[in-house]
Amino acid sequence: MSLKLKNVSRTFDGITAVKNFSISAEPGEIIGLLGTSGCGKSTLLRAISGLDNDYDGEISINGNTSKEVDDRTGFIFQEPRLLPWLPVLENVTFGLKGNKETKVQRAKEFLENVGLSGKEQLYPRQLSGGMAQRVAIARALVTSPEILLLDEPFSALDAFTKMQLQDLLLDVWHTYKSTVVLVTHDIDEALYLCDRIVVLRGQPGQIDTEFVIKEERPRQRGGQKLAEYKSEILDRLDLNNTHSYTS
């Protein structure tokens, strides 16, 4: 599905968090929103999802500009947000429709993908933070959403799990060709996953630069090309010279 944002602004009690943000994503594109904390990345994501509809401007999903939640959209939050009264399996099947057997079968498949098979009957309180986040990821991917919104989904995970789940995300993306918007402050993650990286800056946040990453997938983590991009992005964010800290 295509996604178009036109002049989106969002103001909280007189404080503008995002100003005149416009972007359009082709179906199946992975877009990264990169920026320092507080520049309105998550605000944008919430506006796209429809959880927040007090924004100005226009967001159209496949030409539909209603501000409601579209149930073909999946959202992976920064925290797991599991329902504590449901065991892992039922947390994963929560958003699935259809008959019980296929739901369970699908959920089990995805739990296996995130490395949690055998943990179906555990309750969220029995999971570690990383495990809980993996369940949340399985829950969002299992519905094979056509638009997938990710709000720093891997930031709480250890490096190994993180890489593994990034690959899982790419697998799912390959199969379903979802349009993905990834909010992150991890430059390496953005470079590994995204077709296009939008760098946001300032308060209120505005588009600073856009990078189109043409590198073929599977990309090599820490490869030469990505390193060049990284240095460029760091420059844009003024993080490469110590001068910016003093001024």
């Binding site: 999802s49 429809g50 959880l51 939640v69 579209d70 149930d71 959209t73 999946g74 959202f75 939050f77 925290e79 947000r81 329902l83 929560f94 958003g95 519905t143």
Partner: peptide, 21 residues
């Protein structure tokens, strides 16, 4: 509120939200 948002993301209506969350 965060759990209610999860329900909303899955397109639950008010009654489903009440019952399921």
């Amino acid at each position: 509120r965060k759990l209610i948002e999860v329900g909303k993301m899955y397109g639950l209506n008010t009654i489903q939200l009440i019952i399921r969350i």
